[in-house]
């Protein structure tokens, strides 16, 4: 990994069969065409007005606020989770790992239902929370909870991979040099896996920003409180398609920025 990688020669010995290009092109088209269509549909003239309308600004501000909070929560909870998964040998850990990663592949609405049955007013914990005077239903906290639920696996996967790749040898050297466990974690482990942590956090942020199903099912939709960008797009879709497209473009731009930011990093 030291220094720049030498440029790959233009031609290698083994060539691909030509026909591979056809399905490859179809696949690329399948991914790109809808995006191009969306961009083509953007009402550029009204774009500034659409993006700065009261509801758009409220949705954008709420999305940024909740996605940031969810990312912070992901880091706070995901780093210890990744450390436990990568650095300990507790029994049943591989089962736990699979379960923790489940939200990655779960349909969002299913996640919303699961959250509902856990933290909803009639949920597993909802009753106890209600008794304590805590009600997450229809609050911004519910949005953050839903976003954290779906985004956490991204951080854990990314960081656990980085931890495994980095190995333990630097940590062992540091310990022998006199660093206690906390110092090793702070001054060696985390700095070494920082790129993985950053890309995990960026992915988590993007996932939180795009979270829709679980929020809709679990948190509700109220301007400034629970109606995030995707929910605003969903709402505007029928009544004001131009506004919906404008906001969709905003989400695409954020997603593109995330892809660019994360691309090339070894983790994930």
């Amino acid at each position: 990994m030291r220094g720049a990688r030498p440029a790959r020669p233009a031609s290698t010995g083994a060539e691909l069969p030509r026909w591979v290009l056809v399905p490859a092109a179809v696949g690329a088209l399948l991914v790109l065409l809808p995006l191009v269509a969306l961009v083509a549909r953007v009402p550029w003239a009204e774009l500034p007005a659409l993006l700065t309308s009261e509801s758009s600004r409220a949705a954008l501000a709420l999305s940024l606020r909740t996605a940031s909070a969810a990312t912070a929560l992901c880091v706070l909870l995901g780093v210890p989770m990744a450390l436990v998964l990568a650095r300990t040998a507790l029994p049943g850990l591989h089962v736990l790992r699979s379960l923790v990663l489940l939200p990655l592949v779960l349909p969002p609405v299913v996640g919303g239902l699961a959250l509902l049955y856990a933290f909803g007013r009639r949920g597993l914990l909802g009753g106890q929370l209600e008794a304590l005077g805590v009600s997450v239903a229809f609050t911004t906290a519910a949005v953050v909870l839903a976003q954290t639920f779906v985004a956490l696996p991204f951080l854990v996967v990314s960081l656990e991979g980085a931890l495994r790749t980095a190995g333990r040898r630097h940590e062992e050297v540091a310990a022998v040099l006199g660093a206690g466990p906390w110092t090793v974690l702070r001054r060696v482990t985390l700095p070494v896996v920082l790129p993985g942590l950053v890309s995990g956090a960026v992915l988590s942020f993007a996932r939180a920003l795009g979270e829709f199903g679980a929020t809709l099912t679990f948190a509700g939709s109220l301007q400034g409180t629970t109606r995030t960008l995707p929910l605003e797009v969903y709402l505007q879709r029928e009544t004001d398609p131009d506004a919906a497209v404008a906001l969709a473009l905003l989400l695409v731009v954020v997603a593109a920025a995330v892809v660019v930011a994360v691309r090339g990093r070894p983790a994930l």
């Binding site: 040898r169 630097h170 062992e172 050297v173 540091a174 310990a175 022998v176 040099l177 006199g178 660093a179 206690g180 466990p181 110092t183 090793v184 001054r187 060696v188 700095p191 070494v192 920082l194």
Partner: peptide, 29 residues
């Protein structure tokens, strides 16, 4: 625990901490 033993390990691979300068590596202990 290893960090209380006052030994030091020099392996085949230098295993320097990549995020620290040479000076800060040497100042680590």
């Amino acid at each position: 625990a290893p960090h209380r033993r006052r030994t030091a390990l020099l392996a085949q691979d230098p295993l320097l901490f990549g995020h620290l300068t040479a000076l800060d590596n040497a100042a680590f202990a």
